[in-house]
Simulated assay, not measured.
Amino acid sequence: MQSLLLLLPDFSLIVLGAVLRQVMLNEAAFWPSVEKLVYFILFPALLFNAMATADIDPDGTLPLFFSGLGLMLSGFALAWLGRPLMGLSPLAFASRMQCAYRFNTYIAIALAGKLHGPAGVATMGALCGTMVPFANIFAVSQLARHGQTNMLSEIARNPLVIATVAGLIWNLGGLPLPDAAASFLKRLGDAAVALGLLAVGAALRWGKAEGRLAGSVWLLVVKLMLLPAIAWGLGRQLGLEGVPFDILVLFAALPTASSAYILAMRMGGDGPGVAWLISASTLLAIISLTFWLQLL
C-alpha cells in the first residue's frame, strides 16, 4: 500500500493529462507545443543542472554507470531476440524495439525524489543523464539505418545529449554555477516534471497497431519485469547498496519514454505502434513499479 501511495501523485498527473486532452485542452497544436517546450527547453535544463551540480565520485558512480549501461545493452539485446515475434518491417521493428530500453525520465525524477529526497533526485539525474546519450545512440542508429536520416547528425543535435554532455563538462571542469543560474535552472526543471507527466498522459493512444500481439507483449515483459530483475542482479554483483541500488532498480522498472514516439515520428518510423507500447507500459507500470518498490 505504501508503494502504491508513493506512485499515486505522479500517476495522477498522467491521468489528469489524459483527461485534459479529452475534455478541455484538445486543440491540435497544444500538446505538441507542450512536448516541444519540455523536450527542447525544460528537460535539457533539468539534465544540465543535475549533471553540473552532481557530486561525481568515480568510486561510487562508476559501478552505477556500468550497471546502467549493462541494462541498456540487455534491453537492446532482448528486444532483438523478440524480432521473430513481431511480424514487422525493419523500420517498424527499429521504431518499437526502443520501447524495451528507453526510460521515462519525468517519472524517474518524480519517484526518485519521493523515495530518497534530494539524494535520490541527484542520483537518478546523474544516471538518466549519462544513459540518455546511449538510449539515443541505440535508437537513432537503428532508425537511421533503416530510414533516410543521418545518425551522427541526429545525435549531435539532440537537446538531451547536448545538455547532458554540457553539464558533465561543466562539472568536471570545476566551474561554479551561480546561485541565480542554479535557481533559474531548478525552476525550469520543476516545470519539466509536472508538464512532462501531463504530456505523458495526453500522449496515451490506443489506436490499432500492426504486427503480432506476442511481439508487443515481449517488449513489455522485457521493459517492466526482466530489466528490473537484471538490475537487481547487476547491482548486487557490483556492490551497490542503499540509494544507488534502489535508484538502479527503479530506473530499470520505468515505463517507456514518450520521446520514443517523437523520435519515431520525426524519423519516419512506426508512430502508432510506439504510441501503443508507451501507453501500455505506462499503465502497466502502476502494477510493476508497485511490485519492485515493495521489494526495495
Rank of each mutant, 00 (worst) to 15 (best):
L47A: 09
N49V: 12
F76Q: 00
P44I: 14
P63W: 04
D55I: 11
D57P: 11
F48T: 11
L73N: 10
F65H: 01
N49A: 13
A45T: 13
L46S: 10
P58I: 07
L62H: 05
A52M: 12
I56L: 15
G68S: 02
S74W: 04
F48L: 13
F65C: 02
V38H: 02
A54D: 11
I56W: 03
S74E: 02
N49H: 15
P58K: 03
D59M: 00
P58C: 12
G60F: 10
F40G: 13
F76A: 01
L47I: 15
S67P: 05
A50E: 15
G70T: 06
N49F: 07
P58S: 03
F48K: 11
L69C: 05
P58Q: 02
S74P: 08
A50G: 11
G68M: 07
L71V: 04
P44Q: 13
P44C: 11
T61N: 01
L64A: 04
F48E: 12
G70W: 05
L42D: 07
I56M: 12
F48Y: 13
G75T: 06
P58A: 01
G60M: 00
F76N: 06
M72L: 14
L64V: 02
T61Y: 09
I56A: 12
S74R: 07
A54W: 02
A50D: 14
M51W: 11
D59G: 03
F66Y: 12
L42E: 08
D59F: 00
S74T: 14
G68E: 06
P63K: 05
T61G: 03
F40M: 14
P63M: 01
L47G: 00
L73F: 11
D59I: 07
A45F: 04
F48C: 04
L69W: 14
S67W: 04
G70S: 10
T61W: 14
L71D: 04
G70Y: 07
G70K: 06
A77L: 12
G60A: 13
A54P: 05
G60I: 00
G75E: 07
L78G: 01
P58R: 00
